[in-house]
Design a protein around this nucleic acid. Structure first.
Lengths: 338, 338
DNA sequence: ATAGGATGTCGAAGCGCTTCGACAGCTTTC
DNA sequence: GAAAGCTGTCGAAGCGCTTCGACATCCTAT
């Protein structure tokens, strides 16, 4: 293993000079810099991470805590994780992957050991037990998702309230007056992961403003659960012509069931989904949808975090504006309804 | 930040004694151990990761390199990643998440800097450019997936050849004589990711042994591509009654298309999938399938790696035996065929 | 009674790096 | 032409831990 000292000797300078070449924290003459860089290349030198962390008390590592649970739509998590890793690298950071399994202990461990300089938490619950720890430490952190109380925290998330509003608006504009919302599994609501509630909030308030009737039903996803849910909805509100779906595993079943019942999309009923673009594009009908901007969320989170690590940037809540892409699953409400 | 020295002082012992309590590398009297442990708890001490890494030249970190590309089925990757992280923790290791983006450079960087003690590589190509580097270093590594030449490497993967054989066997046993294989996207074959070829190999050789006719067609996935592929297959081999699908995004489209054409599953045609159990269970017909044992692969990989780090265990190829779960998508071939 | 072996603890030497203060050799300034 | 300021480089201290050899102590076997 090549060390700094060996590079210094090879280049005929002192160790500190090599260090300054590497960090750029003091000016070095061009000629010396080049000699040092040459030696580094020739010897294939890589600074030792441990020594560096010890001496500088910076590990250049960002911890990313992903949920262990897999009832959330997994590809989104993965996409965020990859965006985080990629963006972190462009800022000189590596990413440590923590699962939610350890819970708050992981926060303590990572903070206490100086393993990471900062943390990103995914899948934050409204009243997450890790939050007090984060507030109590001076280690920067960013949440992906929104807890109930955001004071003293930096959060990044899609603006789900605006998302809900946008979906209703789109359907209302097309003349739909009876809209059903197919939501996440009941467990998601019970767990108080805020996004589902915020979406509903946006849906409801905008629906009221626009004078649209709204019926919300959580759904486990899968064919059987969807069949039951749909039957109940149509029983209760036979005039339903618009659907908003916020549950990836209910999308395809819903389309199949509608087809099976002879209800054409978008001629008879319209469907708007809140889901990753990939799902919207690969469905049997190309779905009008609001995308979950996974990459953007990951990127934003890292950038906020790096800003904090550099002493720039304060606590703030970044809500990404939703964008509705109109595709083939929505159209004017059939005449004669409501 | 609490240090070892402070713990030592608090407990009235020397620093080295505390260190030995922590590592267990020398025997410590019960009374001393307890005093030290008490102090550790009271002070909330966490050993500094950097200092530890520097002094012991072990970082207790395993690097996991995941593919950047997302044309593979993402949930499987995620499940493996989580299994790796979870298993690693039970052995006292943390996991560093690297994306394939940096390619071989990441291997050099991590190896050179001592950031990680070992590596796990996912999505290995047959002739992966990272392999020479791995062979040339003394840092332990495990591949998830099988390259062309495995000498000097440790690999973990599903036995895809046996998987292919198993699928054919099952269909043949049920009396199917004309089987179509719907494979991954052409790009996957072109990239020479071995698993697709190995499955095909198993399918073909067993089909020949059993006197079954086999037709293989790659497929991009999605409805449109599947429609084209299916039409071609039925045109070329109208008597096809069995399907083997190795492409998650083709499964549901295939079922929908068959239904649409009035071919009942499993009465008229049988379908076997090679996919994660979750996909098989959530499909519109519960699919007979061979599961991709993501968790098991992640776990095995870490365990092999830890064995190597402990000086136990040598290079070897671990092929996980496939298991076929019979569900509702396969049945006896309709009489009068072939 | 005493040599020899366990057993438990300590001191000190690094691990490879960053960073601070010092300083030699320049250039600028009046 | 001397004071003052820059620039570029160096030496040394120290980050918090592991680990090796040394050394008491106590036990066991002669």
């Amino acid at each position: 293993m090549v060390t700094l000292a060996e590079v210094a000797q090879h280049a005929g300078v002192s160790a500190s000079t090599v260090s300054y070449v590497l960090s750029g924290k003091r000016s070095i003459s061009t000629i010396t810099r080049q000699r040092v860089e040459q030696s580094i290349r020739e010897l294939g030198y890589h600074p030792n991470a441990g020594a560096r962390a010890l001496a500088s008390s910076r590990s250049n590592i960002i911890a990313l805590m992903v949920p262990l649970r897999t009832d959330m739509y997994v590809p989104v998590m993965m996409e965020i994780a990859i965006a985080v890793a990629t963006t972190a690298r462009t800022h000189g950071y590596d990413v440590l992957l923590l699962t939610g399994e350890e819970g708050p202990d992981a926060v303590r461990r990572v903070t206490g050991s100086g393993l990471a300089d900062a943390m990103i938490l995914m899948d934050v619950e409204l009243d997450d037990e890790r939050l007090p720890l984060l507030r109590g430490t001076d280690q920067p952190s960013v949440l992906i998702g929104l807890p109930a109380d955001t004071t003293g925290l930096t959060c990044v998330d899609l603006d789900f309230k605006a998302t809900g509003a946008l979906c209703v608006e789109h359907l209302a504009m097309l003349g739909h007056r009876d809209i059903a919302v197919i939501g996440e599994a009941p467990a998601v609501y019970e767990r108080h992961t805020g996004f589902a509630e915020r979406t509903l909030d946006g849906l409801r308030s905008r629906a009221q403003e626009l004078g649209v009737r709204l019926l919300h039903r959580p759904c486990e996803g899968g064919y059987d659960a969807m069949a039951v849910t749909l039957a109940r909805i149509l029983d209760e509100r036979p005039g339903t012509t618009g659907f908003v779906v916020q549950n990836e595993s209910a999308v395809e079943p819903l389309l199949a069931l509608l087809r099976q019942q002879g209800r054409a999309v978008p001629e008879d009923v319209s469907v708007v989904a809140v889901c990753p673009d990939q799902v919207a594009m690969q469905a049997s009908v190309r779905l009008t949808s609001v995308a979950i901007p996974a990459q953007e969320m990951g990127r934003h989170a890292v950038e906020r975090l790096v800003a904090k690590l550099d002493g720039r940037g304060a606590d703030e809540v970044v809500l990404i504006a939703p964008e509705l892409a109109v595709r083939a699953s929505t159209g004017p409400a059939p005449s004669g309804t409501s």
